[in-house]
Write a protein that binds this DNA or RNA. Structure first.
Length: 596
RNA sequence: GGGCCUGUGGCUUAGCCUGGAUAUAGCGCCGGCCUUCUAAGCCGGAUGUCGGGGGUUCGAAUCCCCCCAGGUCCGCCA
């Protein structure tokens, strides 16, 4: 068999066509639905229940009849068990074919060739008014993992952060920075700019709650600011009640300052963005106006007191939602745009730049996202953004809230993770340099955090508990990292041990064969993540793989193996495991340390 | 009030879209394994009305209906 052919598909096709032929010889024309059994020894199965029903036979009778009519194959053998036709690939041959195929990919294992698809993943996009808290930390972790898995799957991906520099939050921040004396504020939690500047935002917010003149003031500023942005006059002085308050360009620079601090948290989490797109872009390049003009032509569009809205009444039944908000407001009475309107402009632009747009959003954005899609359809947009929603992380005592001071900052969690990891490393290693200790502690600490945020289905709520967030035992990043380090340790003792021709048929031990099979599941796990956005399946896959590697490690001595050919095959299996574990961890944005 | 999401051993969780063979793992608990390539490991054991009730089906954790609990949304806010 040619090394470039994927054995899974090859064997599956062989079984499928043999089954189809046998079925046809029984006069059954249905295309058989071949499944992967969840349990049991076999590799594939054909449940015969529905076929038997249509043929008027008992399932086990049909299975046996099909079995009797199947041509024998060198690739697999088949048995009939309680209504199932079970197919088991010829173990030695299959494992060898898998290993040869994987080995031929070299260091590129798990990377598909470019598929020509351009994907934009928008994630994180938190308002630039203060540091990240862990309530939203799932967003960058899920988003970045998706980006990595798409890249591994061969897509050309852009990770995009949509920065809200046009809204009330941004204006409150700037107003605070220019009108509140720093000496009136309490000390900041950290030196980082996001922690420093959030104090101005909080103070401005507090003032708005007590001072009724604040709200109209901010609204006037926002309106004047939008006008300045629309006419590309960033030097314009933005005033209210005739008094100058800020310059238009101050808003953007304030956001950028806070964003600097936020970017450094992202980088600590191993999250990299490719581009930051500011909301003001949509205003300054005129696309906001084009959106409004375009939607004006929609039959759903209505006007009231100068405000434009889409009348969604007709969609009520379709959505099975009697209380569907009937109006999707596009502009205020004064003609100025709203967040959702700018979002439409952004999406039109984004969709024109890629083949697939994916948004990672908190579940609170579901409704807004639905409205967005309706508006995009009204504008004639055929491709719509895909969404990945996640539920919030809350605290045992309730929802995180900055105002009630009930919040855990991401920066604190990151520090805590690294310092817990450091303690664990120190328990086991005394030979490390300070730099080595830091590097391993960081890999382990941050890895454990990221792992715990992607290991569960995104739409499940998470209650944040320190001991769980920093879990280093069992199904955790360090468990997987440890297997990787063990592999590296063996390879380090004989770096040339797998060079030359490898005889994969030397791998006959059950734990070797199990490991090879598990290694071959990397590709399918990556494509499930990339194509169906099920990124949470990578974590349990890696745990299972690491566990199989540990069994192999226990059962099969490598360096001490005396038969040179078997030793080489085992060395190569260790190298293959190292590559696959490394690739999987890379997909999760988790470092794969050489030693722990 | 209505829409959407979630509810699986003491705790956390996979499977649900696309119904099928003994319901997946981990933590914790109990009992073993370091003169042998890193014990952050391995092996064995106990633990389940798959939120509750109906229905469809030869067969339901999975599909449909009702109910309960938690989350979330229903602004000329973002």
């Amino acid at each position: 068999m040619d090394a470039s052919v994927d054995p899974v598909g090859y064997y599956t096709d062989a079984f499928t066509s043999t089954v189809s032929e046998a079925l046809r010889s029984l006069g059954i024309q249905d295309e058989p639905i071949i499944e992967r059994p969840r349990k049991g020894e076999s590799d594939l199965c054909l449940p015969c229940f529905n076929l038997a029903k249509r043929a008027g036979l008992r399932p086990d009778t049909l299975a046996t009849m099909v079995l009797e009519r199947m041509l024998p194959s060198e690739l697999f053998h088949v048995s009939s068990v309680s209504g199932y036709l079970n197919c088991t690939f010829e173990p030695g041959r299959y494992v060898k074919d898998l290993a040869v195929h994987m080995w031929s990919r070299g260091g590129d294992i798990g990377l598909s060739p470019p598929n020509g698809e351009r994907v934009t993943v928008e994630h994180t996009s938190a308002n630039p008014n203060g540091p990240f808290h862990v309530g939203r930390a799932r967003n960058p972790v899920l988003g970045d993992t998706l980006v990595r898995m798409l890249r591994a799957d061969g897509s050309e991906v852009e990770a995009q952060y949509w920065v809200n520099d046009m809204g009330k939050q941004a204006m409150l921040l700037v107003w605070g920075m220019h009108n509140i004396d720093a000496s009136e504020l309490g000390p900041a939690e950290r030196e980082k700019k996001d922690h420093q500047l959030v104090r101005f935002y909080q103070a401005a917010n507090a003032k708005m709650e007590t001072d009724p003149s604040m709200e109209p003031l901010i609204n006037v500023l926002l309106r004047n600011y939008e006008a300045a942005v629309a006419s590309l006059d960033m030097d314009r002085v933005i005033s209210a009640e005739g008094r100058p308050v800020i310059r238009a360009k101050d808003v953007r620079s304030a956001c950028e300052l806070v964003l600097d601090g936020m970017k450094s948290s992202l980088s600590d989490l191993n999250v990299a963005m490719d581009s930051f797109v500011y909301e003001s872009k949509v205003v300054s390049d005129g696309s906001l106006q084009r959106v409004i003009e375009g939607l004006r032509k929609s039959p759903l569009c209505r006007e009231e007191n100068g405000a434009l809205y889409l009348d969604l009444t007709g969609l009520v039944d379709e959505q099975k939602d009697e209380e569907f908000k009937k109006r999707f407001v596009l502009t205020r009475s004064d003609g100025s745009g709203l967040y959702t309107t700018r979002d439409i402009g952004y999406h039109l632009w984004k969709l024109s730049m890629c083949d697939r747009a994916i948004n990672v959003l908190g579940e609170d954005h579901k409704y807004q996202s639905l409205q967005l899609s309706i508006a995009l359809k009204e504008l004639g947009q055929e491709r719509l953004p895909e969404t990945m929603f996640y539920s919030f992380v809350s605290l045992p005592e309730g929802k995180m809230s900055t105002r009630r001071n009930r919040v855990v900052f991401l920066d604190d969690l990151l520090d805590e993770a690294v310092s817990n990891a450091r303690e664990e490393v120190l328990k086991r290693r005394s030979d490390l340099s300070p730099e080595g200790l830091e590097a391993i502690s960081r890999s382990v600490g941050i890895g454990a955090l990221r792992f715990n945020m992607v290991r569960v289905q995104p739409d499940k709520q998470i209650v944040f508990r320190w001991e769980e967030a920093l879990n280093f035992d069992g199904a955790s990043a360090p468990f997987v990292q440890y297997s990787h380090a063990r592999a590296c340790s063996i390879l380090g003792k004989d770096p040339s041990g797998f060079l030359g021709e490898v005889d994969w048929s030397m791998l006959v031990e059950p734990s070797e064969m199990k490991l090879v099979r598990k290694l071959s599941e990397l590709g399918p796990v990556i494509s499930l993540g990339a194509r169906e956005r099920k990124v949470h399946l990578m974590a349990p896959y890696l745990v299972e793989l690491a566990s199989f590697f540990n069994e192999f490690y226990r059962d099969c001595p490598v360096l001490k193996e005396e038969d040179p050919s078997r030793r080489k095959a085992r060395m190569a299996l260790v190298e293959l495991s190292r590559r696959v574990l490394g690739r999987g961890l890379w997909c999760l944005g988790i470092d794969a340390p050489m030693s722990m």
